[in-house]
Design a protein around this nucleic acid. Structure first.
Lengths: 189, 189
DNA sequence: ACAGATAGCGGAACGGTGTTCCGGTTAGCC
DNA sequence: GGCTAACCGGAACACCGTTCCGCTATCTGT
């Protein structure tokens, strides 16, 4: 009531704060890649050149940091869907993208576990998953159906979640790819 | 060289030692069931009525304790394969057992993660998995093929691992079951 | 350009957990 | 009954997540 429309920045962030935030995301990305998402908080703060207090101020929950790191990586995968759809026939594009997605998840250890941990703290990440990745996949699915392919009725989100689980194992990507292909075959049965 | 053939017990275990060992496995089973396999070591020792030192003497690695607890649970699942094979036609028995196995893995949170963590400490558990579960499944697969079903060539162990991964998520058993059925459909494509 | 207000920083401190180690205890054997 | 070694318990140490607060650096108004 008392506040105006407040359509714009209710607050102007201090310059050093934003700088530290960027450094933290960058450091977290590197540490996650080499030690997994369970890496010690301190090692991330140290790498970013800040104290743990600063890290906690910007990311109260570990999941917030994980979300920040993975969100941008998801975007690249979403973009690939459009590119593949433009360059290949619908059915082929579908398979190719799922394989591309498989590769993506396989290289991001811990992403799958985080997404489906059931921990409510990961809601934002899961939300982004539903908002961005699932629709991209859904479009490919619909395009394939429109082109005459017989595709079993599945919930896109559920299917992608299953693929992610399949990639969760560290037993090389070979097995994961074979099982994903089996899942794709089931889609056409 | 100096030791004889040592064909039999090189040592006789003290009675209290064996008693404590049993108590520990029993306590671990209960604690794992209610708090997951990552439950504090101390809580297990306490429940068993022994000190942490004793626990570590019997099970130097957490994985040793997990293996001890899950091994016997796997046996029950293996037995179910024979029962189902005796009571149903091959193809049906195959599906039923996979669903039974799905249920088993789903109730044992952490089993799947442990099996496919890649951690060499879980080799013994994985070995038992290969030695007992995989052959049981393989038999059902062969029986179905012998009965004329067209079943894609898959590595039994790999397939069971995939099913376990699918059940890893905490998002209820519904989703897992649907995806497992999709995998089964892929088996027949 | 300067000073006051305050967003933001760093790291010490606390509680909980895994793991090690060793003095004391007890079962098994003579 | 007494000896010996296997065995036990828990104190001690290292590491990690998380909180808290005194100090610093940035922004803003003049």
């Amino acid at each position: 009531m008392s506040t105006p429309p407040d359509t714009r920045a209710p607050r102007t962030r201090r310059a050093d704060a934003r700088q530290n935030l960027d450094a933290l995301v960058e450091a977290a990305k590197a540490v996650f890649a080499e030690s997994g998402v369970d890496a010690p908080i301190r090692s991330i703060a140290e790498r970013a050149g800040v104290g743990v207090g600063t890290l906690y101020r910007h990311f109260p929950q570990r999941s917030d940091l994980i979300s920040a790191v993975f969100r941008r990586e998801m975007d690249a995968c979403v973009d690939a869907a459009d590119e593949l759809a433009a360059a290949h026939p619908p059915g082929e594009a579908l398979d190719l993208w799922v394989l591309r997605y498989t590769e993506f998840v396989a290289t991001k250890r811990g992403l799958s576990a985080a997404l489906h941990s059931g921990d409510p703290a990961y809601e934002p990440l899961a939300g982004y998953f539903s908002t961005r990745l699932a629709p991209a996949f859904s479009n490919l699915l619909e395009a394939a159906r429109a082109a005459g392919e017989r595709i079993a009725p599945v919930d896109p989100e559920e299917f992608l979640g299953a693929v992610a689980d399949l990639c969760h194992s560290r037993a090389g990507t070979d097995r994961a790819e074979r099982m994903v292909r089996l899942l794709l075959a089931g889609l056409r049965a």
